[in-house]
Design a protein around this nucleic acid. Sequence first.
DNA 1: CCTGCGACTTGCATTCAAAGAC
DNA 2: GTCTTTGAATGCAAGTCGCAGG
Length: 575
Amino acid sequence: HIVLFLRELYSRFFSFLSWVFLFAVWVIRWEEERYTDGSKWRFLEHKGPVFAPPYEPLPDNVRFFYDGKNMKLSAPAEEVATFFAKMLDHEYTTKDIFRKNFFKDWRKEMTPEEKSKLTDLNKCNFSEMNEYFKAQSEAKKQMSKEEKQKIKEENERVLQEYGYCIMDNHKERIGNFRIEPPGLFRGRGDHPKMGMLKRRIRPEDIIINCSKDSKQPKPPPGTRWKEVRHDNKVTWLVSWTENIQGSIKYIMLNPSSRIKGEKDWQKYETARRLKKCVDRIRAQYRDDWKSKEMRIRQRAVALYFIDKLALRAGNEKEEGETADTVGCCSLRVEHIKLYPKIDEQEYVVEFDFLGKDSIRYYNKIPVEKRVFKNLQLFLENKQPEDDLFDRLNTSILNKHLQELMDGLTAKVFRTYNASITLQQQLKELTCPDDSIPAKILSYNRANRAVAILCNHQRAPPKTFEKSMQNLQTKIDEKQKQLSTARKQLKTAKADHKRKAVQRIEEQLMKLQVQATDREENKQIALGTSKLNYLDPRISVAWCKKWGIPVEKIYNKTQREKFAWAIDMAEDDYEF
DNA sequence: CCTGCGACTTGCATTCAAAGAC
DNA sequence: GTCTTTGAATGCAAGTCGCAGG
């Protein structure tokens, strides 16, 4: 007995120790390691990027025709031609700007002879190339299991070698360790640069960032890096300058990494601080609607929109460099319409503009009389293309916000309003007696409310109608099944019959819930809000409170990204 | 102030792979 | 097993915001 007792004591002691240890690890991982000098790490080691595979010239039997005549292209010209040929089925290639930009850049890659011969894109026939690539992708699909397995293994090997780095004491997953391959730029919306050639990135374009005491990544044989630097004030491992906009691209860590997780946590903590003082800020901007200064009134009305409608800040953009899209501060007169009275409502503002990614924002909302009067004032003597808020920009607004609360910027309102909406909707929609699938439907509905607030849209999936139909047939079948099962139960009141009925009822309910969920989600994208705006601790707490496994709302990747929240949040967490 | 740049987050679409239907 | 469908992973464009330098 004594031996058993000691054993028990030992095991308790060790389980206690391991608990202490785990807790310490948790604290170290999420609480410690705030460098006070702005540095992001002390040690960083990685293998550098993976480059795009080199161009493989087309076989001779794949021909290109100009003006009906077969023509063998030089390798550089041929490569660019294949980019276009691959996109032939896409609507892009019919657009004037796309064709014009492509042709201009293509000609730069041609030999002098090619340049003098190929003067009209309309006379170019890429169809054999196009068919060749279609056949190739078809062949890829038809590959044997073994061949597919081999490719998979090779990918896994590359991932193991290049996909991880050491940052401080952790091995971390890298987000995007492959360099973007060359191709034709496809902007979103009406982009003036669509069709331009995105050039191939070489080692000589690459800046490596790592710590001095690390093993430096080696450039491919016979090449060298543009630069190797040791800047621990930034988080990126690799950077290069892209040729379309001249902007810098980075290789950074995966969202599951310490450095991203901490930043994410910080973001939600800032939003929670806003929660504490949002009433004061709202009172202030309402007061500012009456200011004698125009710039203050504009600032106050803009902030009201950002708060109420979750609009983005709206930085100025260089004209002609990008698609014409706007956010709050860059709204123009042409983007709003004022209705003193419409459909029984007073002081209605109609918004209609293209926002980020050229997604349309359309909304008609009644506003306070004072806001309405201010808007009328802002519109006076202006042309449609003039700025609505001519005395305001994001930098002015953010400076003001900074004075109202440390760390406050326009986007914090989006985070705050998204998260608080989720929390409040979950409270409102979750019925304690509901089954798990019904509760998850409620969760999705709460998530959907946020997505609608943030205007997160998607193109309805091409197969949407069909997949809805399929689901409906399943439901019909299940209903038939249920009625037969019920009949059988009536004739023979056996226990297993009763159970069968119950089981089928459950299945039917599950299907119906699924159908509702899918229908409501037709044009709404939940992913962005889930990943970027909703404090994951709200969701984790909700799961704990109602006994819902976290896996039901977060998949593996999401659980990795939100590991910090899954660790932290208890069932009583309040945003 | 204004402008441009740099770093980092956000966002939709496409591609890929696993699950489910046949 | 094979074909379809679906959800996850990836891709990369497009925002936000702070800061340096004139």
